[in-house]
């Protein structure tokens, strides 16, 4: 991946080189340089259909989630930065326990992560940001190896936001993350800093699975639903199901097209 210049990153400076949520382009560039090594040489990410990522304006990336640690989110993050010009920082919605982790919470805020609350999302979409969301949440990343590529219960918040704020949803399938660090068990009673479980992976380090990231065509939920519709749970569930099935189709295509887990 090309070296990222912090000056190329567009963001809403709140006065001191940070946006109101704590995003700092210098940290983004530095983190990307390090994670870029994983992206280029370890996971050797291949991107498919990146032209579907909007060059500007608000949008929501909805992806499947897996891999014991959120390395899939990191790879998707770098893939979006790499395939947009000027580079767009996708704003990952974080689970509520993340800010409690020392260093981790602060680091995620500096690279664009935002607590996944309604008010935060609203501001991001009003500001024209690209939101990155994993509707499966922690259960997606916590599933054991025998459930790989099975979508966990799909949350509906992204569909609600998309209809309310009239923004497209781009379905994303991440192939490879399921095999990167197989989870054999988890200890649910271990809840340090509010984390939902302690993962027990099969290997001491992640495996160099070949990542494939597939972007689908943007789904314009807002064209089929009107503004009051987010208040109707059935409509929102149906809209979210459309996104889920689009991701499922992409997963199946990705699995079909790849030559092997490590190739």
């Amino acid at each position: 991946m090309p070296r990222l210049d912090p000056n190329d990153i567009k963001f809403r400076d709140a006065g001191h080189g940070y946006d109101i949520f704590g995003l700092n382009p210098r940290t983004v560039a530095a983190a990307t340089r390090i994670a870029g090594l994983l992206y280029d040489h370890y996971f050797r990410v291949t991107s498919h259909g990146a032209h579907h990522i909007p060059a500007g304006g608000s949008a929501i990336l909805a992806a499947n989630h897996s891999g014991t640690l959120p390395l899939d989110a990191a790879m998707l993050y770098i893939d979006v930065l790499t395939h947009t010009d000027p580079p767009r920082v996708p704003r990952a919605l974080l689970d509520v326990f993340v800010p409690r982790f020392p260093f981790v919470g602060a680091f995620f805020a500096r690279v664009g992560g935002v607590g996944g609350t309604r008010r935060n999302c609203r501001r991001l979409l009003q500001d024209g940001e690209l939101i990155m969301v994993f509707p499966e949440g922690a259960p997606g990343i916590a599933k054991t190896f025998n459930h790989r590529y099975e979508l966990q219960p799909w949350r509906v918040g992204h569909a609600e936001l998309a209809i309310e704020y009239r923004v497209p949803v781009i379905p994303v399938a991440i192939i490879g993350a399921e095999e990167q660090w197989p989870l054999i068990a988890r200890i649910d009673r271990f809840k340090v800093f509010g984390a939902p479980y302690l993962p027990i992976p099969a290997t001491p380090l992640p495996l160099p699975a070949h990542y494939h990231i597939h972007y689908g065509e943007p789904i314009a939920l807002h064209e089929d639903y009107s503004r009051p519709d987010p208040d109707d749970p059935e409509i929102v569930a149906a809209a979210a199901a459309r996104v889920e099935s689009a991701v499922q189709v992409l997963i199946e295509r990705g699995l079909r097209e790849r030559k092997g887990i490590f190739r």
Binding site: P99, G105, G115, T117, R119
Partner: peptide, 12 residues
Amino acid sequence: DHDLPNLIGEDH
């Protein structure tokens, strides 16, 4: 708190 919005509205 960790589970509250970073952006504080009047209804926070």
